[in-house]
Amino acid sequence: MGIIAATKTQPKDLQPLPDRPTASDLKQPLIFDGHNDLLLKVQRAGGLSALSDYMEGGPGHLDLPKAKAGGFGGGFFAIYVPSASNADVDDLEVRDPPYDLPLPDAIGWEDAMTVAMSQFAVLLRLEEQGGLKIARTAREIPEIMAQCKVAAIAHMEGAEAIDPDFETLEVLYAAGLRSLGPVWSRPTIYGHGVPFRFPSDGDIGPGLTDHGVRLVRRCDEMGVMIDLSHLNEAGFWDVARHSTKPLVATHSNAHALSASARNLTDKQLDAIAETDGMVGLNFATAFLREDGRMDADTPLDTMLRHLDHLMSRLGEDRVGFGSDFDGAMVPAEIGDVSGLPALRKAMMDHGYDAALLEKLCHRNWVRVLEASWGH
């Protein structure tokens, strides 16, 4: 949730593009994305009774018809517990920087569990209805996409629904959970996040708690990826010290280009590169723009500058996308998932060749997930 074996033949849908793709190829390569908030959207629209909006098409950024139109191959589907106020971020303030928004209060485990179970049920029911397929191993992702299905990773954004004995973590892992962020900005028993503040960096407050260190170690043992997005800088370095896995931020941008507390400094990017980790580019305009404004009138060149900077620090094998669809205002030239061909065209026009497009669109995510999960 944001502001808002090499010798084998590759599956047909994942064949490399020609060196210079044409307009007819703009739905390829399929994009596997680091973050969306579809489950929250469906829950707010009625939960299990509102599944038709995804299956048949409805409001918002992401549904099955839009996914097919845009060449969306899947991604991380976030389970996110909103605050009771329903106002985690004041959109009006973010439109006119500078801003420093107070974070909502922490949420108790019992309240969080109710919401998390409801959203996980939506994900499971969508799989049952054929709208997507949950990937529990990295190798399943290209297999699912090659079948023209949406590959979904069950991700938890903020660990409020995880009890300190990790019993719920065990159950959720059995159901398919494979990625977890210890916080969504507001504090949890596991750590502290960054507020929505511009201009600022993430060096704000304490990092992981003792419970948080235990959580990181247990997730490493189980094969649950830890997501660094939303953690403050102290928490980032705590994960770096205690995790043996690649460092991954599913939906974060370059602080050097947009001085938001949510973005990563070059020092953090260098640390991610040292672990052979990954960053997914967030499409949220407030985290893209130099002026920090949330404004749909944001050119795609802004996204390309972030991609170039991320690759200059991380290398081309450690960058992908983390759109924040259904959780943020994205550039109008993309609009929603069906607008992803515009992003591919912009990358092609910018000089990215076919091999680089494939890495950015999905292959880098598959690589880092296999390293993180061990399968």
Rank of each mutant, 00 (worst) to 15 (best):
P82A: 01
L64E: 06
K12Y: 13
A6I: 06
T302V: 10
E316G: 02
H211T: 00
D210F: 02
A138S: 09
G131K: 07
S118T: 15
L314R: 02
D336L: 04
H230P: 04
L169G: 08
P21G: 04
H375W: 12
F72I: 10
D297H: 14
G131A: 05
D203A: 11
D63I: 08
L123A: 14
L228F: 01
R95H: 09
M329C: 14
S49W: 09
R367A: 10
L360N: 01
R214H: 00
V216H: 01
Y352P: 05
N364M: 12
K149T: 00
D25A: 13
D210H: 04
S372R: 06
P187D: 06
D111H: 12
C219W: 00
E128C: 12
R139P: 02
A249S: 15
A161V: 11
Y190A: 04
A87T: 02
R139T: 09
G335Y: 03
H306L: 05
E93V: 11
R344K: 09
L300E: 05
E170I: 14
G339N: 08
V368P: 01
I272K: 07
L126G: 13
D88N: 13
N253S: 14
A121L: 15
P142S: 07
S52P: 04
M156G: 00
L310F: 00
L314A: 03
A259Y: 13
L169V: 09
N253D: 15
V248C: 15
A23V: 11
G47E: 14
L51P: 15
L30E: 07
G130R: 11
G212P: 03
L340G: 09
A161R: 12
G60R: 02
L64C: 08
A5P: 14
W373F: 00
T250A: 14
F76G: 00
D37S: 07
A234W: 09
G34Q: 01
R262H: 08
G46S: 12
I272W: 08
R125V: 13
